[in-house]
Write a protein that binds this DNA or RNA. Structure first.
Length: 1071
RNA sequence: GGGCCAUUAGCUCAGGUGGUUAGAGCGCACGCCUGAUAAGCGUGAGGUCCGAGGUUCAACUCCUCGAUGGCCCA
């Protein structure tokens, strides 16, 4: 023994993980550990992580914990592998979400209310509101151990950030990529602004809309067979009929003209393929075909519009036009054109010079003086319009239709497609470069990049970036109020000062309304330059973060260049069209201005992307506030600890698959694993505290037991594999590899088989065991550090005295992997399984020693076979056997069987494979024995003889004889179940020891306490004890051991049953 | 309507380039161990691999069509 104090602390088993983690967080703060890791690698190669800024005015959810875990773990891994990993926090602070929060808080709604409240006050509120949840975000992020530089975050509303964004916009303007256009855009009438396509993508909802068929009169009377000719028109937006300018048909489609049987009052024209759907099943019975027309022939015909409340301005109207986009999938094959309210309609209007009617104001209401629907919100006007159509006898039929319709992603108002003036980035001009850049990005998983995102880029449309709102980066475009074609785009605050002719004040604020006070005489001489009223899409802000976070190009040019392009981003799949896109679009648009050579050789602002899928609830349902199945991260972290939650999220399934979030599963998987690790460490620590610590006396690995070398080999293999997987961004597999090593190899096999080697601390073999287990734990902690940063650090500190987060991920000189040894152990473990099964089927418990087992392994190299022989004692111990024999083919109890190898046979025999296989399978044991020794064997398939090739067959050994046999295809174990009197005595002796040990424990004795024993029992028991007296006494630390006859039961003796035999044991402490 | 992903044991998931006993963990049943003990370990029972066709000597694996669920888009 030693006079050293115990030096490996142990976690109290009842302590919740939370307590250990929180104490550790406090310690990290005190040590400034994160800063230490940054300093440690400051001069190493850079690995740039770009943090997608969360909006700080929504609460963090469990899915945020998921993506933040991923961000953190890859950053930690790259840091541990010797990279300078910069991690700047950021906050997305502008935009509609913020405005809506403030509107809610103020109890107001809509732009009129905001203007009444005052833009100055409103924006001041927005600026504050942004920080509402900041504390919660930092708290959750900190709690899960997400290391980010929160002390120097980028904030998108800061003056520096806005100036960089202005620079980007001015640069795009110079490249003629920023323009004002008039296009049909999805528009939120409540928020009063247009939305970009990626915002629309967030808000599809299933709604019930009217489905209305009209029958409009055609001007051409035709051949006079009917009095009225009418054309059937379909729409789901009756309110747009007020601004109807034309009808469109598909030039390639066939249209039929029909009348009710025998009636000459009117006819209907509609697409042939839609007749059944519109007129009803069996329409041919009830309707008479008058004529067929092609779409092309209908073009140019005139009709009468359904509603005449709005005056047509100049242009063509009430005419049928031919357009390819008209589909015959639904409706009547005739669609109504309202150029102000649909993208296709608008384009058709341009092509055909149609009248442009826009009788709806910015709030989505008809003018107050309009008949019937005056002043109404358009969607509310639908029923009145349908009523009016009926009155005017132009309604054919009206119903409803469930379909997905876009809604404002923030306020849920149905969007209207409006022709509006807006500012655009001409992304279509550099679409090809975006696609090329994207092709070079390493997407994980690949199909999101190639499929989802690639497809999106293919269908790219210009990015509408202006917003008619208040809290955002102001669009830095000044226009001459006397001549709108005269424009200046301000790319810096210096420009602004120069143009306006006045120095900017110290408290300069580039936001509305202050910025709009900056006006100046137009350079051309007449008029005043005034800023356009819009602010920009907040996605443009976040997409600018690679340079704007450094206030590039105004300062930090070096820093920016060192951090561009980014190596790594990770976000949820919902960001595909959000941040992933805005980053790419802005960087590609800026091209060489951002990154020299970017235009010639398209580069993405990020090289590697990890996309994670959704977190679903325990039942696999999407989490949403309306379903009420969201999970509050703080409570979950409280219950399970951050390590378990992180490990669960990463390892439960591949991160790019949706995962169900089930707390019971956290406990059963990640929680159980961490418990196993804790237990292994505890086993080590408690026993090492008897006096082992690492020293030069520990045998070198090569001199340690083969079992030690085996686990060290497995450790090295696991280390290399985990590292490789993390390099490849496969966190799930990495986590599983490490977890499996700890559970299967270290805990279930190494520790279990080595237990008694730890019961002393001084002999070389004991020292070897301690040194080996210590090494395993140390390395496991490192491998686990990115995944479960708390427990790994706690244990590592106990083992080494330093933080795991300052350690390298992989060792410089790991123990060499020994595949032959590992292969041998696979055999040993398989044989152990077979041996246990054999015991079970022979109904002999492990405590009862047995004589011998004869086994055969799978085919092994000579070196591996030698290892198997060397490892055989482990098998004897594990199975409590006196002898293990490895049978060879020559043994009489072994017969050989041929198992055809279909893979190789198939190549040679093709169709004849089954027959060849049958011939091979039928080969006799003797033949195979000869074959193994090199004698050629001929097999006869379809009459001819062919020589059997070695790799066409695998030869298996089977036992014959009276042994208990278990086999698994390539190996077998044959157990001799006979229990000789000698074995029986030994079994009983072990029974006694086991029983006494339990009693010692029940009596509360210390491990080292000495005892006196009195055992009464029949002759059989007394015999067994007398033969094994020494051994028993040694095992249970008995100073005296007296045996007595069955009827001489001592005072305070306990009745026991020893393998079915009644006996009494009296145990007293020896004082 | 289109794209992508999934569907394997009661549950959660593994199953390169097709090869003949489809695996693991949890749960369940039975048992072991009792000096890792608020632990540890073993054995076993559970599967027409979503369905239908096809290609092939051979399909969980490849192809086609469909079903169901999820995400995304029109």
């Amino acid at each position: 023994m030693t006079d050293k104090q115990p030096h490996f602390a142990v976690l109290p088993p009842e302590q919740p993980a939370r307590e250990m983690e929180e104490a550790l967080l406090e310690r990290w703060r005190e040590e400034r550990l994160f800063e230490q890791t940054l300093a440690q690698h400051a001069d190493k190669p850079r690995w740039v992580f770009l943090e997608g800024p969360p909006t700080a005015n929504g609460r963090p959810g469990i899915h945020h914990v998921f993506s933040r875990t991923l961000k953190d773990l890859f950053c930690r891994h790259r840091s541990m592998t010797g990279h300078a990993v910069s991690r700047k926090a950021g906050w997305d602070t502008h935009g509609l979400p913020v405005e809506i929060e403030v509107e809610k808080a103020l109890g107001i709604s809509g732009k009129q209310d905001i203007e009444k409240f005052g833009i100055e006050n409103f924006n001041a509120r927005c600026r504050e509101s942004v920080w509402t949840y900041r504390q919660e975000w930092e708290q959750i992020s900190g709690r899960i151990g997400y290391w980010l530089d929160y002390e120097n975050p980028y904030v998108t509303y800061s003056n520096d950030y806005v100036e960089s964004v202005w620079w980007a916009l001015a640069t795009l303007y110079k490249k003629e990529l920023l323009f004002q256009g008039h296009k049909i855009l999805p528009y939120c009438p409540r928020c009063g602004t247009a939305l970009s396509s990626h915002e629309v993508a967030q808000g599809y909802e299933d709604v019930e809309d009217p489905s209305v068929y009209l029958a409009l009169d055609l001007a051409d009377a035709g051949d006079g067979r009917v009095k009225r000719r009418r054309i059937v028109v379909w729409t789901t937006t009756p309110w747009t009929l007020v601004s109807n300018a034309a009808l469109a048909v598909n030039p390639e489609l066939n249209y039929v003209e029909v009348r009710k049987n025998g009636r000459d009052d009117w006819s209907l024209v509609l697409a042939e393929s839609r007749a059944g759907a519109v007129l009803g099943q069996g329409w041919e019975e009830r309707w008479e075909l008058l004529a067929t027309h092609t779409g092309r022939s209908l073009a140019g015909q005139r009709y009468t519009r359904p509603l005449d409340w709005a005056e047509y301005p100049e242009g063509n109207n009430q005419i049928i036009v031919a357009e390819e986009f008209v589909s015959a999938d639904d409706g009547s094959g005739v669609v109504h054109m309202s150029p102000a309210f649909g993208a296709d309609d608008y384009a058709a209007g341009q092509r055909h010079g149609l009248s442009f009617l826009q009788p709806v104001n910015a709030r989505g209401e008809f003018p107050a003086d309009m008949p019937v629907v005056g002043g109404l919100f358009v969607k509310k006007a639908d029923p009145l319009i349908i009523e009016e159509l009926k009155k005017r006898d132009v309604l054919w039929k009206a119903g409803t239709l469930m379909h997905p319709y876009p809604h404002c992603w923030r306020c849920r108002t149905p969007l209207l497609y409006y022709a509006r003036t807006s500012w655009f980035i001409k992304t279509t001009a550099f679409k090809d470069r975006m696609i090329a850049a994207n092709n070079a990005v390493n997407w994980n998983p690949p199909e999101v990049g190639a499929g989802r995102f690639g497809q999106w880029l293919e269908n790219n449309i210009d990015w509408a970036i202006s917003r008619d709102r208040y809290w955002g980066t102001p669009l830095p475009v000044w226009v001459n109020d006397a001549d709108p074609t005269e424009r200046q785009v301000v790319g810096s605050y210096a420009d602004l000062a120069a143009f306006s002719g006045r120095a900017l004040p110290a408290d300069f604020d580039p936001h509305k309304p202050y910025i709009d006070a900056y006006t100046w005489p137009a350079p051309s001489g007449t008029g005043t330059m005034r800023r356009v009223p819009e602010v920009i899409d907040t996605w443009f802000d976040s997409g600018s973060m690679p340079f704007a976070q450094w206030h590039y190009p105004f300062e930090n040019a070096e820093k920016f260049r060192a951090h561009y392009p980014g190596d790594f981003i990770a976000e949820g799949v919902d960001q595909t069209r959000g941040w992933f896109y805005s980053l790419l679009a802005i960087a590609t648009g800026l091209g060489d201005a951002l990154h020299p050579g970017a235009e010639a050789n398209a580069t993405s602002p990020y090289k590697n992307v990890v996309v994670n899928d959704l977190v679903l609830d325990a039942a696999g349902q999407k989490m949403s506030k309306s379903r009420g199945n969201t999970v509050a991260p703080a409570a979950v972290l409280e219950r399970h600890g951050a390590d378990a939650v992180r490990l669960f999220l990463v390892s439960a399934s591949q991160i790019w698959k949706p995962r169900s979030f089930d707390e019971a599963v956290i406990r059963d998987t990640a929680g159980r694993f961490l418990l196993t690790l804790k237990n292994v460490y505890k086993f080590f620590a408690e026993l090492a505290n008897f006096g082992w610590s690492p020293s030069a006396e520990d045998p070198l690995p090569e001199q340690r037991a083969l079992l030690d070398q085996w686990i060290l080999s497995r450790l090295s293999a696991t280390e290399a594999e985990a590292h490789r997987l993390l390099e490849a961004f496969d966190a799930t597999s990495a986590a599983r590899v490490v977890m499996e090593f700890v559970d299967e190899d270290l805990s279930k096999w190494y520790v279990r088989l080595s237990r008694d080697r730890f019961y002393d601390v001084s002999a070389p073999d004991n020292r070897a065991a301690f040194a080996t287990l210590q090494e395993c734990l140390v390395v496991v902690c490192r491998l686990l550090a990115p995944l479960a940063p708390f427990l790994s650090d706690w244990v590592y500190r106990e083992l080494t005295g330093t933080s795991v987060h300052l350690a390298p991920y992989v060792r410089a000189t790991p123990f060499a992997v020994r595949p032959e040894l590992e292969a041998a152990m696979v055999e040993i473990r398989a044989l152990a399984t077979l041996g246990r099964a054999a015991r079970e089927s022979a109904s002999v418990k492990v405590r009862q020693p047995l004589g011998a087992m004869i086994c055969v392994t799978g085919r092994l190299s000579a070196e591996a076979t030698a290892c198997v022989n060397a490892l055989a004692p482990l098998l004897m111990l594990e199975l409590n056997l006196k002898k293990i024999e490895f049978a060879t083919s020559a043994d009489s109890l072994v017969s050989l069987e041929a198992k055809p190898n279909f893979r190789t046979l198939g190549k040679r025999w093709g169709k004849e494979t089954p027959r060849a296989a049958a011939v091979v399978a039928a080969l006799e044991s003797e033949t195979l024995r000869a074959f193994e020794h090199g004698t050629p064997v001929m097999i006869s398939v379809d009459g001819t003889d062919h020589e059997l090739l070695a790799d066409e067959v695998s030869i298996q050994r089977r036992a014959s004889g009276a042994l208990v046999v278990q086999e698994d295809g390539t190996r077998f174990a044959a157990l001799d179940p006979a229990i000789s009197p000698e074995l029986r005595r030994e079994g009983l002796a072990r029974e006694v020891v086991s029983r006494v040990q339990r009693m010692r424990k029940e009596t509360g004795l210390q491990v080292s306490d000495r005892i006196r024993l009195e055992i009464s029992g029949p002759t059989e028991v007394r015999d067994a004890i007398s033969v094994h007296r020494e051994w028993i006494a040694g095992e249970v630390l008995a100073e005296s051991l007296v045996t007595k006859d069955t009827n001489q039961v001592g005072f305070n003796a306990v009745a026991v049953e020893l393998d079915g035999i009644a006996a009494h044991i009296a145990l007293t402490k020896d004082c």
